[in-house]
């Protein structure tokens, strides 16, 4: 464990809590892509199947449970409790365009052809594109609530911190997880234009609105 990974996990947890608080307090999920949240729940479900078979540490187990709970609670709030405020007409990204190629790729490119390993690989590839429906929705509506931009900032920051964690682990313990690193780079790149808008607009107190 290193400081980059801890900061990354904290940033990830903070993002999820920010989103939950936003929906819970405003009792509204307008502007939030339910499809992205479904993909995140799927990412954690397929990645944490080893929750009971592969004990890494108490921290690892506790965080996995918290992440799973947050993900499913968020999906429940969007499609269950506050579904009347969910603007599905703006959440139109075609998930099959992500799920089909990623499923194929996880069968082709993985560390070992076993169910758990293919599902883990699937979750890594899926996570790199899971935010696309949300970014697509923002580009479609042309704006995002400030709290939503903070959610996206910490969500993008977490995987950027994981890149630093992988560099650190490569130099200190010769650890190199190519599938995770390549996917993590792709995932972080998807946030770049958002990061630019976040820094130049939101941090200056302006509302995030796309040109």
């Amino acid at each position: 464990m290193n400081v980059f990974r801890i900061l990354g996990d904290v940033s990830h947890l903070l993002a999820m809590i920010l989103l939950l608080l936003k929906i819970w307090r405003s009792k509204c999920c307008t502007g939030i892509s339910g499809k992205s949240q479904i993909l995140f729940a799927l990412v954690f479900t397929t990645r944490y199947l080893d929750l009971f078979t592969n004990f890494v540490s108490l921290y690892n187990t506790v965080m996995k449970v918290i992440f799973l709970l947050c993900a499913y609670l968020t999906v429940y709030m969007i499609y269950g409790k506050f579904r009347k405020t969910f603007d599905s007409e703006n959440d139109t990204f075609r998930l099959e365009f992500l799920l089909v190629p990623i499923t194929g790729l996880s069968f082709l490119e993985n560390y070992s052809f076993t169910p758990l390993e293919i599902l883990w690989t699937f979750s890594i590839y899926l996570e790199s594109v899971a935010i696309l429906p949300q970014l697509f929705m923002i580009s479609k509506t042309g704006e995002a609530e400030t709290i939503t931009t903070h959610y996206l900032f910490f969500l993008g920051l977490y995987r950027a911190l994981y890149l630093a964690n992988w560099i650190w682990r490569y130099h200190t313990e010769n650890f190199y997880d190519q599938i995770a690193v390549v996917s993590g780079v792709v995932q972080t790149i998807f946030y770049c234009d958002f990061f630019y808008l976040y820094v130049t607009k939101v941090l200056k107190g302006k509302k995030l609105s796309l040109p």
Binding site: R5, D9, H12, R47, D50, N54, V56, S57, N60, M63, K64, F67, Y111, S112, T114, L116, E117, W120, Y162, N165, F175, Y176, D177, Q178, I179, A180
Partner: peptide, 10 residues
């Protein structure tokens, strides 16, 4: 990569 099934990251 790490040996299969031994992923220690979240």
């Amino acid at each position: 990569g790490p040996e299969p099934g031994r992923h220690d990251e979240l």
